[in-house]
Design a protein around this nucleic acid. Structure first.
Lengths: 198, 198
DNA sequence: ACGTTCACATACCGCTGGTATGTCGGCGTA
DNA sequence: TACGCCGACATACCAGCGGTATGTGAACGT
């Protein structure tokens, strides 16, 4: 076996094992010893590929984020008009977040381990970017009232993160309720006339 | 000094020191050694009052949550009609969350350290409860369309958590933008007629 | 063929959270 | 008011953690 092949294989098994363990018991709950034992390598290998435990976690998180972003993008592209794309993308994001693996890594441990700033940067570069793009289009074509897009994107992103967390450990009935609530929220944004005096 | 007095003082200084340090460098970033050194006590004292590091953190978090809930409740009670109470409460929550101490403990480390379930239980018992109550009133009196309140409360809670995090490390201009976006979001919910076919 | 380099493996370290045990002063009791 | 007890700590110690420094053998360029 060539050296580059071997290197890639080792890196993959480390990433896969780390993802599985981090998702199962959380970042703090799994030690390097167990990680390398399950991977069938040694700590030397791990520190050859990554600068440390948090760096390995970062790599896992980025992979998860990319997967979710891909799912969302695909769901959106299956629709035609921009509004349907937004709603499909949001629904798919919540569905993707319902996966427990994604949850623990992306939403729970992510900000705590990497710090909110780093986490936000990754989030921004993947999931939130699509959301911002979609909202920008909808504001430009008049579907949504003119307004700064970035804050709205953050609000919606936060709402969907929470929705995903909520879903993972609740009855399937709640899934429908939450999806419905999110759908209503988005529709309300669209339908909103001049707001009543507040 | 009486024994109960001394006990209370020790507990207080531990809670205060822990809150300061956890907020400054995060749960994982501060060790028990530093904690007890800054507190002027020993590990024995800490373990006499709390079952461990996470238990101390939980106590700190609950205190922070109670403070935030009190601020929100006070802001809401200063208003008269239920809708104004909701908006005032939401604005106050975001403002409270903008405090870096609150952020790190309540929003970043909280879920990761205690697990999302425990965190949610605390959150539910304090901040979210007020939100749910307010929404229930508004649905009952017809200000908001009839709908399940719990999912909506989670969505709004998540949106506001994210807004608070966003605010802490951004220019004051963003604060206005975000508050405005949140205000628009709430107004949209209220104004929403029958949603257009989706 | 051979020296180099690279992808690991091994051995070791300081430090962390946690525990088991010691100690001393307030406090109820006689 | 003498005393013994218990509660509020302090001290000593430990296994395991993440991280590092060094060793090693096989692939690779020449």
């Amino acid at each position: 076996m060539t050296r580059t092949e071997q290197k890639e294989r080792t890196r993959r098994v480390l990433l896969d094992t780390a993802r599985r363990l981090f998702a199962a018991r959380g970042y703090a709950g799994v030690g390097l010893a167990e990680l390398v034992r399950e991977s069938g390598v040694t700590k030397g290998a791990l520190y050859h590929h990554f600068t440390g435990k948090t760096d390995l976690f970062r790599a896992v998180l980025e992979e998860v984020q990319r997967e979710v972003a891909r799912r969302v993008a695909e769901a959106a592209e299956a629709e035609d008009d921009p509004w349907a794309q937004l709603k499909a993308g949001c629904a798919e994001f919540v569905a993707a977040g319902a996966d427990a693996e994604v949850q623990r890594i992306m939403l729970i441990d992510g900000p705590a381990v990497l710090g909110w700033n780093d986490w936000r940067a990754i989030d921004e570069a993947t999931s939130v970017r699509h959301l911002t793009d979609a909202l920008t289009v909808l504001v430009a074509d008049g579907t949504l009232p003119a307004q700064p897009v970035a804050p709205l994107a953050r609000l919606l992103s936060g709402a969907m993160n929470e929705a995903a967390l909520w879903l993972a450990q609740s009855a399937p009935a709640d899934l429908a309720d939450t999806q419905a609530a999110l759908s209503r929220l988005l529709d309300a944004l669209r339908a909103s006339p001049a707001p009543p005096k507040s």
